[in-house]
Amino acid sequence: MDETGKELVLALYDYQEKSPREVTMKKGDILTLLNSTNKDWWKVEVKITVNGKTYERQGFVPAAYVKKL
Protein backbone atom coordinates (compact mmCIF):
# COMPACT_ATOMS: atom_id res chain seq x y z
CA MET A 1 0.00 0.00 0.00
CA ASP A 2 1.08 3.55 -0.60
CA GLU A 3 1.02 6.39 1.95
CA THR A 4 -2.69 7.02 1.24
CA GLY A 5 -3.64 3.38 1.88
CA LYS A 6 -4.19 2.50 -1.78
CA GLU A 7 -3.09 -0.93 -2.97
CA LEU A 8 -0.08 -1.11 -5.27
CA VAL A 9 0.84 -3.56 -8.01
CA LEU A 10 4.14 -4.39 -9.68
CA ALA A 11 4.37 -4.71 -13.47
CA LEU A 12 5.82 -8.14 -14.23
CA TYR A 13 6.09 -7.48 -17.98
CA ASP A 14 6.10 -4.60 -20.45
CA TYR A 15 2.67 -3.84 -21.88
CA GLN A 16 1.85 -1.45 -24.72
CA GLU A 17 -1.69 -0.09 -24.70
CA LYS A 18 -3.83 -1.21 -27.62
CA SER A 19 -6.82 1.06 -27.00
CA PRO A 20 -7.49 4.41 -25.27
CA ARG A 21 -8.95 2.55 -22.25
CA GLU A 22 -5.64 0.80 -21.54
CA VAL A 23 -2.34 2.14 -20.19
CA THR A 24 1.25 1.37 -21.12
CA MET A 25 3.59 0.03 -18.45
CA LYS A 26 7.16 -1.21 -18.25
CA LYS A 27 8.42 -4.20 -16.28
CA GLY A 28 9.21 -3.01 -12.76
CA ASP A 29 6.73 -0.10 -12.75
CA ILE A 30 4.74 0.38 -9.54
CA LEU A 31 1.09 1.23 -10.25
CA THR A 32 -1.83 2.15 -8.01
CA LEU A 33 -4.58 -0.48 -8.14
CA LEU A 34 -8.05 1.03 -8.49
CA ASN A 35 -10.19 -2.02 -9.27
CA SER A 36 -9.46 -5.75 -9.47
CA THR A 37 -12.98 -7.20 -9.67
CA ASN A 38 -12.50 -8.40 -13.26
CA LYS A 39 -10.25 -11.47 -13.32
CA ASP A 40 -8.69 -10.57 -16.68
CA TRP A 41 -8.29 -6.77 -16.65
CA TRP A 42 -7.44 -4.56 -13.67
CA LYS A 43 -7.92 -0.80 -13.55
CA VAL A 44 -4.79 1.03 -12.45
CA GLU A 45 -3.41 4.53 -12.21
CA VAL A 46 0.01 5.33 -13.62
CA LYS A 47 2.12 8.41 -13.04
CA ILE A 48 3.93 9.76 -16.08
CA THR A 49 6.56 12.51 -15.96
CA VAL A 50 6.95 14.66 -19.07
CA ASN A 51 9.34 17.63 -19.09
CA GLY A 52 9.47 17.62 -15.29
CA LYS A 53 5.69 17.64 -14.86
CA THR A 54 3.89 14.59 -13.43
CA TYR A 55 0.57 13.45 -14.87
CA GLU A 56 -1.74 10.71 -13.62
CA ARG A 57 -3.57 8.46 -16.05
CA GLN A 58 -6.10 5.71 -15.37
CA GLY A 59 -6.74 2.67 -17.52
CA PHE A 60 -6.71 -1.10 -17.75
CA VAL A 61 -3.86 -3.61 -17.85
CA PRO A 62 -3.94 -7.42 -18.15
CA ALA A 63 -4.25 -8.85 -14.63
CA ALA A 64 -1.71 -11.57 -15.48
CA TYR A 65 0.90 -8.87 -16.16
CA VAL A 66 0.86 -7.42 -12.62
CA LYS A 67 1.26 -8.67 -9.05
CA LYS A 68 -0.20 -7.16 -5.88
CA LEU A 69 2.41 -5.86 -3.46
Rank of each mutant, 00 (worst) to 15 (best):
M1D: 15
M1K: 10
M1A: 14
M1V: 15
M1C: 14
D2S: 11
D2L: 10
D2R: 05
E3C: 12
E3M: 08
E3Q: 11
E3N: 12
T4D: 13
T4W: 11
T4A: 13
T4R: 08
T4C: 13
G5S: 13
G5Y: 11
G5W: 11
G5E: 14
G5A: 14
K6E: 09
K6L: 13
K6T: 12
K6Q: 12
K6H: 13
K6M: 11
K6D: 09
E7W: 12
E7Q: 14
E7Y: 11
E7M: 13
L8W: 14
L8Y: 15
L8Q: 10
V9A: 09
V9S: 02
V9N: 00
V9C: 10
V9K: 00
V9Q: 00
L10Y: 10
L10K: 07
L10S: 04
L10Q: 11
A11R: 01
A11W: 02
A11K: 01
A11C: 10
A11E: 01
A11P: 01
A11L: 02
A11F: 02
A11G: 03
L12S: 02
L12F: 03
L12T: 04
Y13F: 13
Y13S: 08
Y13L: 09
Y13I: 08
D14G: 06
D14W: 03
D14L: 02
Y15T: 01
Y15V: 01
Y15H: 03
Y15M: 01
Y15Q: 01
Y15R: 02
Q16P: 06
Q16I: 14
Q16E: 14
Q16R: 10
E17M: 12
E17K: 14
E17G: 15
E17H: 08
E17A: 15
E17Q: 13
E17P: 14
E17F: 06
K18H: 09
K18Q: 15
S19W: 05
S19N: 13
S19T: 12
S19F: 06
P20Y: 08
P20G: 08
P20M: 10
P20K: 10
P20T: 09
R21V: 10
E22M: 05
E22K: 04
E22N: 04
E22G: 10
E22C: 06
V23L: 12
V23A: 05
T24E: 03
T24P: 07
T24Q: 04
T24Y: 03
T24L: 02
T24G: 08
M25T: 03
M25S: 00
M25Y: 01
M25V: 10
M25A: 02
K26I: 07
K26F: 12
K26D: 03
K26A: 08
K27M: 07
K27I: 05
K27W: 03
G28S: 03
G28K: 02
G28F: 04
G28V: 01
G28T: 01
D29G: 03
D29L: 04
D29V: 03
D29S: 06
D29H: 05
D29P: 00
D29R: 03
I30T: 06
I30K: 05
L31W: 03
L31T: 01
L31K: 00
L31M: 14
T32Y: 11
T32E: 09
T32K: 14
T32G: 08
T32P: 15
T32S: 08
T32R: 15
T32V: 15
T32D: 05
L33R: 01
L33H: 01
L33W: 01
L34V: 13
L34H: 04
L34Y: 04
L34T: 04
L34E: 02
L34P: 00
L34F: 04
N35M: 07
N35K: 06
N35E: 15
S36C: 09
S36H: 10
S36V: 06
S36M: 08
T37L: 09
T37W: 08
T37I: 08
T37P: 03
N38Q: 09
N38C: 08
K39S: 12
K39T: 11
K39L: 10
K39C: 09
K39Q: 12
K39G: 09
D40C: 11
D40M: 14
D40F: 15
D40K: 14
D40Y: 15
W41Y: 07
W41E: 04
W41I: 03
W41K: 02
W41S: 02
W41G: 00
W42T: 03
W42L: 04
W42E: 01
W42F: 06
K43W: 13
K43N: 06
K43Y: 15
K43A: 08
K43M: 15
K43L: 15
K43Q: 13
V44A: 01
V44D: 00
V44Y: 00
V44H: 00
V44W: 00
E45P: 00
E45R: 09
E45V: 13
V46A: 13
V46K: 15
V46I: 15
V46Q: 15
V46W: 05
K47H: 12
K47P: 13
K47Y: 11
K47M: 12
K47I: 13
K47V: 13
I48R: 07
I48Y: 13
I48F: 11
I48K: 08
I48C: 10
I48E: 08
T49A: 09
T49S: 12
T49P: 07
T49V: 15
T49K: 11
T49H: 11
V50Y: 12
V50S: 10
V50K: 11
V50I: 13
V50N: 10
V50L: 13
N51F: 10
N51W: 07
N51A: 13
N51V: 06
N51L: 11
G52T: 06
G52A: 06
G52C: 09
G52F: 08
G52D: 10
G52I: 03
K53W: 13
K53R: 11
K53N: 14
K53C: 12
K53A: 13
K53G: 09
K53I: 15
T54D: 10
T54K: 08
T54P: 10
T54V: 14
T54L: 13
Y55C: 10
E56Y: 15
E56I: 15
E56K: 15
E56V: 15
R57H: 07
R57F: 04
Q58V: 10
G59Y: 02
G59W: 02
G59L: 04
G59F: 04
G59C: 02
G59M: 04
G59D: 00
G59P: 00
F60T: 03
F60W: 15
F60Y: 15
F60K: 02
F60N: 04
V61M: 01
V61H: 00
V61Q: 00
V61P: 00
V61I: 08
V61R: 00
V61T: 01
P62V: 01
P62Q: 02
P62H: 02
A63N: 02
A63S: 14
A63V: 05
A63Y: 02
A64D: 09
A64M: 12
A64T: 12
A64F: 08
A64S: 13
A64R: 14
A64G: 11
Y65A: 10
Y65C: 08
Y65H: 05
Y65D: 02
Y65G: 05
V66Y: 01
V66P: 00
V66Q: 01
V66S: 01
V66H: 00
V66A: 02
V66K: 00
K67V: 15
K67L: 13
K67N: 05
K67P: 00
K67Q: 14
K67G: 07
K68F: 08
K68M: 09
K68T: 07
K68W: 05
L69M: 10
L69V: 11
L69C: 10
L69D: 03
